[in-house]
Design a binder for these strands. Sequence first.
DNA 1: CGTTATATTGAGATAGATCAACCTGGGTGG
DNA 2: CCACCCAGGTTGATCTATCTCAATATAACG
Lengths: 236, 236
Amino acid sequence: MGCNSCACENCHNKMCSKRVPIFSSFNQEEITRVSSLIVRREYKKGELIILEGAGIESLVIINSGRVKAYRNTSEGREHILYIFSEGDFFGEKNLLQNKAATYNAEALEDTGICTIHRKAFQELMREYPELSFKVMEELCNRLVRLEKTIESMGTRNVELRVNSVLVEFAEKYGRAEPRGLVIELPMSREGIANYIGLTRETVSRKMSLLQEEHIIEMVGNKKVIILDMNRLKENV
Amino acid sequence: MGCNSCACENCHNKMCSKRVPIFSSFNQEEITRVSSLIVRREYKKGELIILEGAGIESLVIINSGRVKAYRNTSEGREHILYIFSEGDFFGEKNLLQNKAATYNAEALEDTGICTIHRKAFQELMREYPELSFKVMEELCNRLVRLEKTIESMGTRNVELRVNSVLVEFAEKYGRAEPRGLVIELPMSREGIANYIGLTRETVSRKMSLLQEEHIIEMVGNKKVIILDMNRLKENV
DNA sequence: CGTTATATTGAGATAGATCAACCTGGGTGG
DNA sequence: CCACCCAGGTTGATCTATCTCAATATAACG
């Protein structure tokens, strides 16, 4: 667990507060205060952080690693809603209302999180309106993303959906390299399929087609290089 | 346009401030202050309130009537994202960030709205943290709704989607009557179809099936009576 | 280097899209 | 007050893209 509320420079660096966007407007003193409210935890790859339906009492901020938020659908599949990474937070629905978690959260890799109790975070937001604003901004960004997703899922054109998800990943995880944008995929073919409401076979086929057309190149199962972003975006 | 910033009781009643959830924690004095910041407008049925891509400078709160928020998809169809009604607000994405409107908003019936300039609203949120909280709550509710929608759209089972949308409308617009929950549909078959990513024919067929099974009854084109909510919800 | 999980590819079944014809309800004018 | 009109809705027949099931290939990892 490491140190929980120590404010020394050494520990700070391990703490979320410094690198988390929602605290970006805070000065050193405020950061120290925030740090004292934080409880840190580590999760191993594959560990469940939150179970759908559970009541959580804290806002969870990701310090390092990646987390997938998903639901088990009535059809028995696992529908991924978000991939959270460093600096993202979740549990926002429990922050103000007393809602149970609407999804499961599972560490995709070894992950460090910081939790702040809802009451403490509410207190902070009361004192620092900028913090509220940052949270709202992020909520709006999520709305924008979900609205886009819904639009592309309403689409009959399946290629479009596959392209969209690749563009989305590229924007979020892409690393520019000489050959093109390199994406470290946050999920398996099956994960992608469930993310956009298709079967893994269809995703596979569509991606193979994109490769044949030299729009993308697949490197192993977890990496994709986008060779021609323009053509990929053409119908998104 | 009526009176814009008058604070007399008479005008108050026409103003949003009193009946809008986000201002529900405000006392009389605060309401008066809010009222003075509001600019009221009326729109006729079918009028466009906001055009996708336009920069809006104000938060829009619906005082009376209904508004559909939609986008034109790349396939040339109209995808409805939200149906807003009395007390709902939109333009939240322009409130803090300088984002252009992500959707069109059109009055579904004669509609009265109140607008508050973003700067003024920000000021209010700074002063009254409760207001921020109310806005956040609503944003969270929208996230919940969109997450649900995405899950149901990821579903291969189409009946499920039709049932879901009927349950959603029932919860939002349902009026209990002896025969069952009566829903005044906010959109045409085509609208519903686009809302859940199907064709109007398929929606028609699925609804006819539901009627054959005595789960719903259709009255004309704009009204549906839910006769057996349990069976409708069975697989949602 | 072998074993297991994951991804690809192929062939066939099927649900929903598409195209087309027909019906209905609610509004209008004679 | 009735007949007519027309947008929107329903129903039917086909077509096609994706799902499903199955076999095979490839990657990941100890």
